[in-house]
């Protein structure tokens, strides 16, 4: 996936109120809502599994997908700003502490998505064996499940970072305040 630069980061930061990325309560709320938005994708896949193809399945998917994507985009923006771009910016724009944090978070997220893929594989084998080696799944359910998995893969490092971040110190808050001029990252280019 593409990495963002300082200008893009500053633009996103301007659009997010300080409360959401600057306080632990705001960040953790964004993490919970981001996780809930991703969960809506899995719910939608389950609904499609049992009901598709049908109108209820279609409308449920559109409704959950629409709400989920809106919340997802908002939570993604909040958590992107909260981490100071550590997860999404290019390596040459980060300092050694941010790089170490990024490596640790990505490692955790990698492990979590590996578990999810493993669970998917186990579920596939289970269904395969239970139904005479023939699994009939509505295409919509498969597509939405893979899409939800993709969104999980994208947001998981941000969720982990957002949950773990401590509140900035008083002097940092002055710098991070909503009226403060975004100053980029300070790291050498």
């Amino acid at each position: 996936m593409g990495q963002i630069n300082e200008r893009q980061f500053a633009e996103v930061r301007r659009s997010v109120p300080f409360f959401w990325y600057g306080t632990r309560r705001g960040r953790r709320t964004a993490v919970v809502l981001g996780a809930a938005a991703v969960a809506l994708g899995y719910v939608s896949a389950v609904v499609c599994w049992f009901l598709a193809p049908s109108d209820p399945a279609m409308w449920t998917t559109f409704t959950l997908g629409g709400i989920g994507l809106l919340v997802y985009a908002w939570a993604y923006a909040v958590l992107l700003v909260a981490s100071g771009g550590a997860v999404a910016m290019g390596e040459n724009r980060l300092d050694e502490r941010q790089l170490a944090e990024r490596r640790q978070v990505r490692s955790l997220a990698h492990r979590a998505t590996a578990w999810l893929l493993g669970l998917t594989l186990a579920l596939t084998f289970f269904l395969d064996g239970a139904d005479h080696f023939l699994v009939r799944i509505p295409t919509a359910a498969a597509v939405i499940y893979v899409f939800a998995l993709f969104l999980t893969h994208l947001i998981l490092p941000h969720l982990i970072t957002g949950w773990r971040l401590p509140d900035p110190l008083a002097e940092d808050e002055e710098n991070e305040g909503p009226l403060a001029e975004p100053s980029g990252n300070g790291a050498p280019a």
């Binding site: 100071g84 980060l94 300092d95 050694e96 502490r97 941010q98 900035p168 110190l169 002097e171 940092d172 710098n175 990252n185 300070g186 790291a187 050498p188």
Partner: peptide, 12 residues
């Protein structure tokens, strides 16, 4: 040439 929050992390 580091992020200013890195100084906070170091101090803490």
């Amino acid at each position: 040439g580091v992020h200013y929050q890195t100084i906070g992390y170091l101090e803490r």
